[in-house]
């Protein structure tokens, strides 16, 4: 199943949740919608599911107009952020629900339903919980039951809203790996929403980065990490140093100080310089584009994190390997191994 979204706009009062979103999802993809809260990612997911309606724009499933159908007809599996399990039903009945509410003509007989539910509970490895109620399950178990329930209707698309958002860090890591392998097994076109970059980069085949109702970048996890398309993406993904600079002809200035960096092809004016923390190489004073005084050093396993006051007045944090110990009071030179400059 392919999904295509064209120029979606959705406004809640004066708040623009989606501001012209275009997106194509290929068959069998596992796509992450990544962005801060309020970026419109959940709204986009809910519109694809038929739980919300856009003010304008189009949604196609395999080329067919999906907006002509309600949520009930779209045959989309939706896993809610807080799971939305039916609290008065057992785990078994929760998973069976979608099979039991089908029109009489297409409804399967009881034995088939039981077999199917059993199969799904096996798939999520929770068959031993069939008779429990949702309130008796842990967060991770509820999450997997919600997934089994969504899969019961043999959905054409699987949508997950912050699937790991309500779980603690350890369970979250386990479930990520599990979701990846599950997707590999069932191979349904899947989209999940997350605000956690690590989650998006680790689980998805392709990542869609959103901000303020717009798509900032679509690409593979490597793409969005290694070559961020916009200042927002660079700032949002990975830990970055952000410095306000001025581009004048061939020269880039930080404050009054010209930086020894190439300015080829850059538009003149106020810009932002981004460098990953670990891409700042430490050298003796005067050796790099920047110079600064070490204020404070903390050690994190293999790296040391230093707070450095640049001579331009800005204070930045860098991650340096521990082969050369830094001490507060040292004056050091810094050279960015890689950097990007965005206008604005």
């Amino acid at each position: 199943m392919t999904i295509e979204v064209r120029n979606l706009v959705k406004q809640f009062g004066s708040f623009k949740a989606l501001d012209g979103v275009d997106l194509k999802v290929d068959n069998g993809e596992l796509l992450a919608l990544l962005g801060p809260s309020g970026s419109g990612k959940t709204t986009l997911l809910r519109i694809i599911a038929g739980l919300d309606w856009p003010d304008s724009g189009e949604v196609f499933f395999n080329g067919e107009d999906a907006l002509a159908q309600g949520a009930r007809e779209r045959n989309v599996g939706f896993v809610f952020q807080h799971y939305a399990l039916f609290r008065h039903m057992t785990v078994f009945e929760n998973v069976a629900f979608g099979l039991r509410v089908q029109p009489r003509a297409s409804r399967k007989d009881e034995a088939t339903i039981r077999a199917r539910v059993k199969e799904l509970l096996d798939l999520v490895q929770l068959d031993w919980l069939a008779d429990r109620y949702p309130s008796q399950l842990s967060g991770g178990q509820r999450q997997r039951i919600a997934l089994a329930r969504a899969l019961a209707i043999e959905p054409r698309i699987l949508l997950l809203d912050e699937p790991f958002g309500a779980l603690d860090a350890k369970v979250r890591k386990e479930l990520r790996r599990w979701l990846r392998s599950l997707h590999h097994e069932i191979n349904v076109t899947s989209i999940f929403v997350t605000h956690d970059q690590e989650e998006a980069l680790e689980v998805a085949n392709r990542v869609v980065v959103m901000d303020k109702g717009r798509i900032e970048q679509i690409g593979s996890p490597d793409d969005v990490y290694e070559s961020p398309a916009t200042a927002f993406v660079h700032g949002f993904i990975g830990e970055s140093i952000e410095l306000p600079v001025q581009v004048e002809g061939d020269v880039i200035r930080l404050g009054d100080r010209p930086l020894n960096l190439a300015a080829d092809g850059l538009a003149p004016g106020a810009s932002k310089l981004f460098v990953r923390r670990h891409d700042m190489l430490v050298g003796p004073p005067g050796s790099g584009a920047f110079e600064g005084a070490v204020q404070h050093v903390r050690n994190f396993g293999p790296v040391q994190r230093a707070e450095v006051a640049l001579s331009g007045g800005e204070t930045i944090e860098i991650d340096a390997p521990r082969d050369r110990e830094l001490r507060a009071g040292d004056t050091i030179g810094l050279e960015p191994r890689r950097y990007r400059i965005f206008a604005g």
Binding site: A71, R72, R74, F80, H88, V101, R149, A152, I153
Partner: peptide, 25 residues
């Protein structure tokens, strides 16, 4: 409305949703 939305997305009709999900709650 999450449980009701879940029921609708699983293919339940309005009345099915009301009697099977909302009313028991």
């Amino acid at each position: 409305t999450q449980e009701e939305e879940a029921a609708i997305s699983l293919g339940a009709s309005g009345l099915q949703t009301f009697f099977r999900v909302t009313l028991p709650n």
